[in-house]
Design a protein around this nucleic acid. Sequence first.
DNA 1: AATATATATGCCAAAATAAGCATATAGTAA
DNA 2: TTACTATATGCTTATTTTGGCATATATATT
Lengths: 96, 96
Amino acid sequence: MKNNYYEEKVKILKALSNPVRLEIIDFLSNGEKCVCEIVENLQYEQPHISKSLIKLKEAGLIKDRKEGLNVYYSLKICCLKDFFSCLNKILENSSK
Amino acid sequence: MKNNYYEEKVKILKALSNPVRLEIIDFLSNGEKCVCEIVENLQYEQPHISKSLIKLKEAGLIKDRKEGLNVYYSLKICCLKDFFSCLNKILENSSK
DNA sequence: AATATATATGCCAAAATAAGCATATAGTAA
DNA sequence: TTACTATATGCTTATTTTGGCATATATATT
């Protein structure tokens, strides 16, 4: 259905529409990290980071892997670089 | 500032995070259209379309041009195609 | 000037999101 | 079992977003 077609995209875009979640994605672009590393690095409350990760995962943007007590998250998408370079182009254009 | 860096991207992503606005962008990918054409084609209330267009414009995604009583809107960004093809890849991956 | 048309704005209630804090769960170690 | 650690979940309040309806504005026409 046409509506579903847009709704699914909206879900991904909404997951990305948050500064903390964008920061997490940036951090994960350096490779797989456990939640504790993300919390330590980004300095937000642990539950906040956890919820952010879950939202990104539900949108299909990242994946997780358990190892003992730790959960490791990593990017699931390879095209995100181009995606964000488009965003940057938009920003450059806007400031003109 | 790092915060501003993400906030600006979030503004663009939020503008895109809505099915009606995505539909408008799709429609505009066929070329410049006036508000009346968009309203007629997408079947939403005119004030709703107007607000959607303004939000997209404020995010730097589209531009407008007045001609008599009409206002014509068109895409301002050429990389949106790649942007959405990335979204589609994410969707394909998610459904696996 | 009066009228008509295209578009934008304002206001409102409902729904969604955000973020803090407390607490639960799952795995590990003693 | 008990205690500990890493992560997830639940609850709550504040804020933002949504979409409908009424109305304002700007331009064109008579």
